[in-house]
């Protein structure tokens, strides 16, 4: 029953969100990474014959994490506040489990838009990098004698830089990232109301910084787990002279997926708690 209500909200919200502004925003976000890649490809033009994108997995991972952040910031954070502001919340609140089903339906809609935008962007980006001829040896200084460890790493790098590998490594991370970040931003939006976007933006900045800190705190960030999922799926590892634990954990992909799902459920649970314990007033006193 609740599932039907959530899906009804999703269908209604999806048809309502097919507006020119939403499609235009989605298009801008989807084209951001491909355009940046094209510009980088044109700039790095070695001996006028070869074009290279250094570490495509990392570059595309960062671009698309940014796209997901922006998408959910725009579409997930204000799901309740927009209804309160438009004074339409009352209609949802007077339905049995209306607050819950409408919030979850809107959450799914935000995840759908964010994921589809990022997927289009990733696919276009991978098509672009497939045009570039990737030669990892360009990263080595000329006449350098490669050690066996370096040779091995070059092979890893070559493997993880293939467009198809990049595509299927980043795609699940995008979906999991959209699920987790949307739940976090909805939670933030429910607590902070009018200032939801500001607080969500502050959270995004702090989360990005913490995700790259080689400290325990990174375990609580979404970015760290997404990085692990994408890099481990692509079987990427850092260069031999860098300690792997600076970038990645020793845990399996499944562990990181489970952590992200737990983060998602915890934040959705907290958001539902807020929905049921807080009074959201929209009606003007008459």
């Amino acid at each position: 029953m609740l599932y039907q209500k959530i899906m009804a909200t999703f269908a209604f919200e999806f048809s309502r969100s097919l507006t020119t502004s939403r499609i235009a925003t989605s298009l801008v976000l989807a084209l951001f990474a491909p355009v940046m890649l094209s510009l980088i490809g044109m700039t790095i033009n070695i001996d006028n014959t070869r074009q290279q994108i250094p570490f495509p997995l990392i570059v595309l991972g960062i671009f698309h994490l940014l796209a997901i952040f922006l998408a959910v910031l725009l579409w997930a954070t204000p799901v309740v506040f927009s209804e309160l502001e438009a004074k339409t919340w009352t209609y949802l609140a007077i339905r049995p489990h209306g607050k819950l089903s409408s919030t979850l339906g809107k959450y799914l809609n935000a995840v759908f838009w964010a994921t589809s935008t990022a997927s289009v962007s990733l696919t276009l980006s991978c098509l672009i990098i497939s045009r570039f001829r990737w030669d990892p040896r360009q990263l080595q200084p000329p006449n350098a004698t490669s050690s066996p460890a370096m040779q091995e790493w070059m092979e890893i790098l070559t493997h993880s830089s293939q467009p198809v590998i990049v595509w299927y490594s980043i795609l699940p991370a995008l979906l999991l990232g959209a699920l987790a970040l949307s739940s976090i931003f909805i939670h933030i939006g429910l607590i902070t109301h009018k200032r939801g976007m500001v607080f969500a933006l502050i959270y995004a900045v702090i989360e990005t910084i913490f995700a790259f800190l080689p400290a325990v705190v990174r375990n609580f960030t979404v970015g760290y787990h997404l990085r692990n999922i994408a890099m481990k799926t692509a079987r990427f590892s850092p260069p031999p002279d860098i300690d792997e634990q600076v970038l990645l954990s020793e845990n399996s992909i499944l562990f990181h997926i489970l952590v992200l799902l737990v983060i998602t459920l915890v934040h959705l649970g907290a958001a539902i708690y807020w929905l049921h314990s807080r009074e959201y007033i929209t009606a003007e006193e008459s």
């Binding site: 004074k87 339409t88 009352t90 209609y91």
Partner: peptide, 9 residues
């Protein structure tokens, strides 16, 4: 409930 607020989608 038919609320007083006259705002709809």
């Amino acid at each position: 409930l038919c609320p007083a607020v006259d705002v709809l989608y």
